[in-house]
Write a protein that binds this DNA or RNA. Structure first.
Length: 283
DNA sequence: AAGTGAACCTGAAGGC
DNA sequence: TGCCTTCAGGTTCACT
C-alpha cells in the first residue's frame, strides 16, 4: 500500500487486461472499459481494502485475500535492465498462470495482480456509493486511529460471549486485524484468546483493555515498518518473508518454548482459525 | 441474535 | 517418486 501510493497517484491507467472473468467474485460489468483512461486521484486504505479514487468519480477497490500480491514492473527501471527482461515481463506469454490482472500506466509502469487462491477481490463503484458498499459498510474502527481505545473496546465487548480472539478478528469491531496480529497482540497483553470478550467490558478491566489496545497498535506498527522495508527489495526476496515474521512470539510456534516462561506454545482452533498462545502467560 | 463451521481455490509440506 | 492428507495470512454464507 505504502509502496503503491507514489506509483499510482496522479497516473493515468492506459490499459486494463483481465486474464479471467472473476476472482472471488466476478469483475463488475465493463470493469476494464470503465477503468481504462482514468487518472488516479488518490490512494487510501480501509481495513484490508486498498481504494483508489479516480477522476471518473469511480473508486477502484482491491482486496488481496490471503495470497494476492501486486507486482510493480517499472517501465523505466525494467527498460534499464535490458529489452529482454522487458519483453518477457510484459508479454502475455510471459505471464504466470495466476497473474489475473495487468494495469498499464501512462509512464509505462505495469501493475500485475497475482493471486493463486483467488480469494482476492476487485470492484469498481461510484464514490457516492462507498458508504453503502456491501463490503465497506459496517466495518469497525481503524486500530491505528484515534477512536480505537479501551473505552471503545469495552463498549463493543459488552455482553459478548464470543472468545476474545474471535471478537478481535471480527472486522465489524476492529478494521483490518488479521489472525497473526490478534495472536501476537493477545500474547503481549497477557490475555487468553479463550476468555469471553464480555469479561473485559467492566470498569475494573479498563487497564487491561487499554494495554490490549496499545499492544494491537504496536504490533501493527512494527509489522508495517518491517513490511515496508521488505517491499523495497521485494524483487530480491522470496516474496513471502517479511522481517516481522521472524519476530513472532507465538504465531506458528506450536510446541516451541514461550520466550517469556519457557512453557510450550499451544495451538487451538477458534472460529475455524488457528490460535497460538501460551496458557501460562495468557490469562 | 449471535456464534460456529463450511465453502471458496491452489499450493506447500509432511506422512507413508 | 508419488499419492494422500492437512493446513494456510480472509471473508461470506448457511446453519444451530
Amino acid at each position: 500500500m505504502l509502496g503503491l501510493k507514489p506509483v499510482l497517484e496522479g497516473r493515468v491507467i492506459t490499459q486494463v487486461v483481465l486474464r479471467r472473468a472473476d476472482l472471488r467474485f466476478p469483475f463488475p460489468p465493463d470493469f476494464a472499459v470503465r477503468l481504462a483512461g482514468c487518472r488516479v486521484t488518490g490512494l487510501w486504505r480501509r481495513a484490508k481494502y486498498i481504494l483508489a479514487g479516480l477522476d471518473s468519480g469511480d473508486v477502484l477497490l482491491i482486496h488481496l485475500g490471503m495470497t494476492g500480491r501486486v507486482t510493480i514492473l517499472s517501465g523505466l527501471g525494467v527498460r534499464n535492465l535490458g529489452e529482454f527482461y522487458f519483453e518477457t515481463a510484459s508479454d502475455e506469454q510471459g505471464a504466470g498462470p495466476h497473474d489475473h490482472v495487468v494495469l498499464t500506466l501512462d509512464d509505462g509502469t505495469r501493475l500485475v495482480y497475482t493471486d493463486p487462491r483467488r480469494f482476492g477481490i476487485m470492484d469498481l463503484f461510484p464514490e457516492k456509493a462507498a458508504a453503502t458498499h456491501k463490503l465497506l459498510g459496517g466495518i469497525g474502527v481503524e486500530p491505528l486511529g484515534n477512536s480505537f481505545d479501551a473505552a471503545y473496546l469495552a463498549e463493543r465487548f459488552r455482553g459478548k460471549s464470543a472468545p476474545l480472539k474471535a471478537a478481535l478478528l471480527d472486522q465489524r469491531i476492529v478494521a483490518g486485524l488479521g489472525n497473526i496480529y490478534v495472536c501476537e497482540a493477545l500474547h503481549r497483553a497477557g490475555l487468553s484468546p479463550r476468555r469471553k470478550a464480555r469479561t473485559l467490558a467492566g470498569p475494573r478491566a479498563r487497564q487491561r483493555l487499554a494495554a490490549l489496545a496499545g499492544h494491537v497498535r504496536t504490533v501493527l506498527q512494527e509489522a508495517i515498518a518491517a513490511g515496508g522495508s521488505t517491499l523495497q527489495d521485494f524483487a530480491h526476496t522470496d516474496g513471502g518473508r517479511g522481517a516481522f515474521q521472524q519476530r513472532f512470539l507465538v504465531y506458528d510456534r506450536e510446541g516451541e518454548p514461550c520466550f517469556a516462561c519457557g512453557n510450550a506454545i499451544k495451538r487451538l482452533v477458534q472460529a475455524g482459525r488457528s490460535t497460538f498462545y501460551c496458557s501460562t502467560c495468557q490469562r
